Amino acid sequence: MDKNTYKLLTPGPLTTTETVKEEMLVDLCTWDADYKQMTQEIRAALLKLAHAERGYTTVLMQGSGTFGVESVLSSVVGSTDKVLIAVNGAYSKRMTEICRYHHIPYTTVENSYDTVPQADAVEAALLADPAITHIAMVHSETTTGILNNIAEIGKIAVKYGKLFIVDAMSSFGGVDINVPELGITYLISSANKCIQGVPGFSFIIARKDALKATKGMARSLSLDLYAQWETMEQDGGKWRFTSPTHVVAAFRQALRELDAEGGIAARHARYARTNAHLRQGMEELGFRAYIDPSVQGPIITTFLYPQNQAFDFADMYAYLKKHGYVIYPGKLTEQDTFRLGNIGEIYDDDVCRILQIFKDYQKGLK
């Protein structure tokens, strides 16, 4: 075990490397040229990961991933526009909350939490409501671990000339996403997810022509996406307001470590392998996964509470933490669940240890 007393089986914050943590030991000035260059390096690296070096730009935004989603929705959907939100989890549902807070016109295509949004349903909604200008959805729904089909919805967006907003919070960096090829207009993710940095800022990869058209549309001062981008462009990486300097330094190191691991392909392979190992091992111990393997993403798995044995989540949580791992409670309302993430510094040896801890806990219940 490293300096931490436990590792995180969570989808971000997650367990980071010591070298990422060490980058936060240096204090940086937001106005300094070296720091602004660090921001520019990050912006360019993100575009490369997104296959979006032409026609796209990157905006870094203070705050959690939800801040980034709120920045996009409140900045790019105009007063005469309307957004269609494909809902199949708590995080896509949160998009509707953001729209309500900002009085943004929206409608939804509702799906059960164990199914992916279907392109034909989205297309039917567009045909029924010509007022819709934007489509928004989550890629990796960490409510359940489901991986939604953004490629098929992207085709519908392109076919009907709609702007496409994708919350790729828990997938970007761990799943290859060709942003231009998929017709994505705005992609949002966060520093503390698959790139394996620490919490503190989100980032938006935006189609430049679409972003330029939103000048003056923002409903918030601090979350004004266009204004943030304009300042970064005009002042060589300067953030409009105080930025999380230590987090930015850690994120640059995390990007370098992603590259050293072999890029997104290698990281995806590791995540997929540990996810499959964890899911199989848990099911052998009697913990049934909530969603079908065919729609399971490589980031996090939701498990149903076992029915045939004495079970207390708080007790199990405490036992796991005592033995070196922290897990996530469930996010469902209609069923009792808990979640196991496998991103961050989690490897095959960790999965073997985790499964043994669960096994030992079950023995103690008998």
Rank of each mutant, 00 (worst) to 15 (best):
Ser140Asn: 12
Lys212Ile: 13
Ala136Arg: 07
Phe172Arg: 01
Ile104Ser: 05
Ala45Leu: 13
Pro298Asn: 08
Leu304Met: 07
Cys99Gly: 02
Glu284Trp: 04
Ala125Glu: 11
Gln335Cys: 05
Gln228Ala: 14
Ala90Phe: 03
Leu187Trp: 01
Lys159Gln: 06
Thr144Asp: 07
Leu126Gln: 04
Val83Trp: 10
Ala276Val: 07
Asp129Lys: 09
Lys7Pro: 07
Thr108Gly: 01
Ala250Pro: 12
Ser92Trp: 03
Asn275Trp: 02
Ser220Asn: 13
Phe203Ile: 09
Asp312Cys: 13
Val20Gln: 11
Glu141Leu: 01
Met1Ile: 04
Glu53Leu: 10
Asp114Pro: 03
Thr337Leu: 07
Ala272Arg: 05
Arg273Lys: 15
Ile299Met: 05
Asp235Trp: 12
Ala250Lys: 09
Tyr91His: 15
Phe203Ala: 10
Ala289Val: 02
Lys331Ala: 14
Ser243His: 05
Phe311Arg: 08
Phe338Val: 03
Glu230Ser: 06
Gly237Arg: 09
Pro117Glu: 13
His51Phe: 13
Asn308Phe: 08
Lys363Asn: 12
Tyr106Ala: 11
Ser294Ile: 08
Gly197Val: 04
Pro306Asn: 01
His103Gln: 15
Asp235Arg: 15
Asn111Asp: 10
Val72Met: 08
Thr245Tyr: 03
Val175Phe: 00
Thr214Phe: 09
Thr66Ala: 15
Phe311Trp: 14
Gln234Arg: 15
Asp336Tyr: 11
Lys193Cys: 06
His102Gly: 00
Cys352Val: 15
Ala310Cys: 00
Tyr290Gly: 05
Asp336Val: 06
Val76Trp: 09
Asp2Val: 02
Thr5Val: 12
Leu365Thr: 09
Arg256Val: 10
Ala265Met: 09
Cys352Glu: 14
Glu123Val: 12
Ile204Tyr: 02
His268Thr: 08
Arg252Val: 04
Ser92Leu: 02
Asn148His: 02
Asn149Tyr: 02
Gly89Tyr: 04
Gly161Trp: 06
Ile132Asp: 05
Val26Cys: 11
Val72Gly: 10
Pro293Asp: 12
Tyr328Lys: 07
Ala210Tyr: 02
Glu110Phe: 07
Gly63Phe: 03
Leu258Ala: 11
Met282Trp: 02
Gly173Val: 07
Pro298His: 07
Ser75Glu: 12
His139Glu: 13
Thr30His: 10
